[in-house]
Amino acid sequence: MCGSKTTLGVKAPRSMGERIRRILAERGALDRKKRIRSDDYHIYIPVLESINPDALKGIAGAEIVQMEFEEDRRKVTVEEILGRKPSFETIGDIAVVEDEEPEVVADAIMAVHRGIRAVLAPVSDVEGEFRLRRYRYVAGEMRTLTVHREHGIRYMVDLERAYFSPRLGTERLRVAEQVRPGDTVVDMFAGVGPFSLLMAKRGARVIAIDKNPYAVKLLVENARMNRLDVEVREGDAAALTEDLADQADHVVMNLPHSASIFLPEAIRTAKSGGVVHYYTFAPEDDLYRDVRIIEEKARELGCEASLLYRGIVRSYAPRIYNVVIDFMVKKDVRQCTQITEPGSR
């Protein structure tokens, strides 16, 4: 094996690998410069050459071996430590773990990812008017505030006080790449600004709206921190778009639980030829059912909705998906119905 030699190690069943790795680390015996190996049944953990093999004999489930361990090839992964693939995501320097054994997963994450400073586990689904989740502390620092970096922009995020999902990063870039310098963008449910700031970076005039006061506070700070110009409005999206009729080249509707309620305002806000980026949740057997709702609402307003794109953004729940529908608004501004009674969020 290139770049390696036979050295001391410990062999253990995969189910016991993380426990034994922690014991070796606590005893100062783990060789972190070498790569942990594994096969279908066992994990092989490298031990420092300075360690006396007799010091390892009292570890239950561990078998002392001599074998080759690769050096400086890559970092050991969380999956290799645990012997399985856990469910977690990172937001800034916080890891959010959705697993039956969050403490075990947290230990593995913090051993592998040196930049992680806190590990949390959700104790609720996304809920309430502001789409928030509640968390419990698992490991590291006790906080929910972090700075997340995405596509060259920094975002201050507080996981318990303002909604943010890193899983939408690719989708945000897809939409932003359609924006041209000088375009007007209305982000109806902006949160801390991940759509808004990325579009502002591309030279668009961005009007960012959100009803959550704390999200708005972070949005303002994020715009300042990244030196980007965004017009921020706090309050109900229906009311705060009343003065924007026929102005937007792009309207972003990232409120998948209830975006359909705001379709009249979005259609009114888009100029003729403007594009609405509409997000919703839908069952596997009828993913794009909201196309019918969009077309019907446009007809009611004397306009036309022309489908441009539809796609799955991510899996949300068993057989339920977060989907996007992009449509172009075509209208005669003299005929298209004006909205006089805003909905409520």
Rank of each mutant, 00 (worst) to 15 (best):
R345M: 10
T7R: 14
V138L: 13
R233W: 12
A259I: 02
D125S: 10
K85Y: 08
K34W: 08
V47S: 13
R345Q: 12
V291K: 03
E160G: 07
Q178D: 07
Y309M: 09
P53C: 09
Y214Q: 10
S38E: 09
R27C: 12
K33V: 02
G274S: 01
Y41F: 15
L120G: 09
I207M: 14
Y214C: 05
M188C: 08
E150Q: 13
L301T: 06
G9C: 04
A215P: 06
D285E: 04
R154W: 02
I36N: 07
S50M: 03
I81V: 04
A317G: 03
E265R: 13
I109R: 05
V97I: 10
S260N: 02
E127I: 10
G169Q: 01
E98I: 00
L263W: 00
P86R: 03
G235I: 11
S124R: 05
G3Q: 08
E234S: 08
I339N: 05
P264V: 04
V96I: 13
G274E: 07
K33R: 14
T184Y: 00
M16S: 13
D158N: 12
R37N: 10
I23E: 13
V123I: 12
A139G: 09
N254Q: 05
L173E: 05
R143D: 12
G169L: 00
G302C: 05
I325L: 06
I23L: 13
R35Q: 12
V313G: 01
E98Y: 01
A118M: 07
R289P: 02
S344I: 12
D125A: 09
D187L: 02
